[in-house]
Design a protein around this nucleic acid. Structure first.
Ligand SMILES: Nc1ccn([C@H]2C[C@H](O)[C@@H](COP(=O)(O)OP(=O)(O)OP(=O)(O)O)O2)c(=O)n1
Ligand SMILES: [Mg+2]
Length: 299
DNA sequence: GCGGATCAC
DNA sequence: TATGGTGATCCGC
């Protein structure tokens, strides 16, 4: 995610699709103006630009032979990857919606319908979807957020609480893949391939859960990946009363990209078909790839 | 190893 | 008034 500096909001978060970015950036810039912080960021930008220049001049000094060799080796590598491509597995990525903010809203219903954020006057960790309408987002200082949204309610961070909910979520996910992995408190990856095999043999009862906590009405979940992930999200909701979004695809990276698509409280499955996947990747902004942050992007 | 830079949540 | 906490990786030393 991009930090809020004089350098603008450069990407779009869930819930912020059609905002007037121009106006928001102007407001932020106005508020940041002549601060010490602003000037230090400017110096760092300058330094980065210089380093990029150095790299570029190095690239120019490569001989044609060197470039040919590098291209050949890259081609060999790509060939190898082509052969080892595995579309047979099914991964899912679970990502809680506005996690810290949702926890606070659940525990204090008066926050339910107001724009709010979690953090302090100095820095916000996240905001709820109402606040995102104003351009208020994670990694934005609280006092700047107030310029964008004067009625913003800011509640302090309570890591202990988020950790508690997180471990409940992870416990559920571990039932579908004991080797699941987590990323931060609010995200998890699971390889559902094995579970989906076993799932075929489960009784309907084992795929049945109450519609609400303490309700006699029930929901029966089917045996497809899509229904399995719906079941996971529903179980998370039953135990935490928090909503999650999910992505399903043949590897973790793709699954993560998919979990953003129908956020909040939705899921998306990418078909495990080479052409469909390549087409999906073709349309990706380069910044969405893991490891390409603001600095690398500029090079 | 350690500090600096980068990235991600 | 005021620009984080936490955790991970890579790199050069
Ligand atoms: N710069 C950041 C980004 C995130 N977080 C914390 C607060 C978030 O609640 C949590 C999860 O990060 P996400 O990127 O998944 O954002 P949210 O879950 O808040 O919102 P979304 O619905 O877009 O997933 O991590 C943080 O402390 N600092
Ligand atoms: Mg999230």
């Amino acid at each position: 995610m991009s930090r809020t500096t004089f350098l603008n909001v450069d990407d779009t978060k869930a819930g912020m699709a059609d905002l007037d970015k121009e106006k928001i950036n102007k407001l932020i810039q106005e508020a940041s103006k002549n601060s010490k912080f602003f000037k230090q960021q400017q110096r760092r930008e300058e330094e980065n630009r210089r380093r990029i220049e150095v790299k570029l001049s190095k690239i120019k000094s490569f001989s044609n032979f060197q470039i040919e060799q590098a291209e050949k080796s890259a081609d060999r590598y790509l060939n190898q990857l082509d052969k080892t491509r595995d579309l047979s597995r099914i991964f899912c990525h679970i990502d809680m919606d506005a996690f810290y903010a949702s926890v606070e809203m659940r525990d204090n219903p008066t926050l339910q319908h107001v724009p709010m954020a979690v953090g302090g006057e100095g820095m916000l960790s996240t905001s709820n979807y109402l606040a995102r309408q104003f351009g208020v987002r994670a990694a934005m200082p609280g006092f700047i957020a107030r310029h964008l949204c004067p009625n913003l309610v800011i509640v302090p961070c309570d890591f202990e609480k988020y950790r508690t909910d997180s471990s409940k979520i992870m416990k559920i996910i571990s039932e579908y893949d004991e080797n699941y992995g987590s990323c931060g408190l609010d995200e998890a990856f699971a390889d559902l391939t094995n579970h989906l095999q076993i799932r075929k043999t489960l009784s309907e009862e084992q795929r049945t859960f109450p519609k609400e906590e303490n309700s006699i009405q029930t929901i029966i979940f089917g045996i497809t990946a899509e229904e399995t992930v719906q079941e996971i999200r529903h179980r998370i909701y039953l135990t935490t009363r928090l909503t999650a979004s999910a992505g399903i695809a043949c590897n973790m990276r793709l699954a993560k990209l998919c979990s953003d698509i129908n956020k909040p409280n939705g899921q998306y499955q990418l078909e495990s078909n080479v052409n469909i996947i390549l087409n999906f990747i073709r349309n990706l902004p380069i910044r969405k790839i893991k490891g390409i942050g603001k600095v690398v992007f500029l090079s």
